[in-house]
Design a protein around this nucleic acid. Structure first.
Lengths: 116, 116
DNA sequence: TGTAAATATTTACATATGTCTATGTCTTTG
DNA sequence: CAAAGACATAGACATATGTAAATATTTACA
């Protein structure tokens, strides 16, 4: 167990952007989460997993949805997993990723939350 | 008038991530917005402007809040302005940036919106 | 008009990022 | 146990990014 918070945990700690100035440590904790989402391929991957039935999808399905190499998709999934936006579970030969929707909601609350 | 949508306009066009898979064009339109926010300095700048009274702030105040060079802050403000997250207005010698809160809310709705 | 102040632009550079090819690991099954 | 399939990791490379120094632009005012 690390004492460091994952970006997903960090995002729950702050009041909305428009409410009070974000501190440097908070900003440094949250930026990686946004960075993970700030790529067209990862945005689509996240959306595909989150909108898939059960909120999870197999890598085998995701690979076929892009004209990118399998290692590239694996790389992007790893980034989303590392910041805590996707959970990972291996079942037999296949790997399933599951969207952490509460993380998305925390992030949304931070970005769009009312000022007061 | 350009036929291209700014990222801020693009974000209003899509249903939430968890509702249906984001198309490639939509993802390419939205990613720049997230990219603009996905930096600790720009996150803080955005938060400082948005939480400032009147939703706007003078560059002179923002410069002092960071231990970064003036051109660097100017560069970050430009990025936030270009994607449409900040409006820019010059008054005399000073330049004021204003947060487009409806853009932040659209983005939040896209990220955290309910699946159905 | 000329000088100072506020902000932007240009240029340069070290580091980060997205992608691919090649290879490794793990699981199933013949 | 060997071979095949699913996914991850390592290494390499071109491009993008964050930053600063130097310079330009714009505005106010003496």
């Amino acid at each position: 167990m690390s004492l460091e918070l994952t970006p997903v945990q960090a995002v729950a700690c702050c009041s909305p952007l428009a409410r009070e100035p974000l501190s440097l440590p908070d900003a440094e904790g949250i930026a990686p989460l946004l960075k993970a989402l700030a790529d067209p391929v990862r945005l689509r991957l996240m959306s595909m997993v989150a909108s898939h039935e059960g909120g999870e999808a197999c890598v085998c399905d995701l690979n076929d949805a892009f004209e990118l190499s399998q290692p590239t998709i694996s790389h992007h999934l790893k980034i989303l997993h590392e910041v805590g936006l996707l959970d990972r579970e291996k079942r037999g030969v296949w790997v399933y990723y599951r969207a952490r929707t509460e993380a998305l909601q925390n992030l949304a609350a931070l970005i769009g939350g009312q000022a007061a």
